[in-house]
Amino acid sequence: MPHVEICAETCKGCALCVRACPKKILRLSPTVLNQKGYSPSECTDPSACTACRSCALTCPDVAITVYKD
């Protein structure tokens, strides 16, 4: 199943991936804070992910790994 892995500790919560995601299934976590104090990005609906890589391509911190299956 296509999916993304977001490294919560590397993420700086900039939300560029949220803007880039064509499926609109990314958001900044309303509950989690990482060690640096940022709200990391998270996927709200993994089943809708198409592994299009848009989020990873736009992430300035290379915090996202994308899998096709």
């Binding site: 992430c59 300035p60 996202i64």
Partner: peptide, 28 residues
């Protein structure tokens, strides 16, 4: 799990960047 279709290049070190959140230096 299969090979990722996107992963961090080995030409970048593991050092976290000092750039501000959302600064596009990291993309470049």
């Amino acid at each position: 799990m299969s090979e990722p279709v996107f992963k961090k290049t080995s030409m970048l070190t593991d050092a976290p960047t000092h750039y501000c959140p959302g600064c596009t230096h990291g993309i470049i």
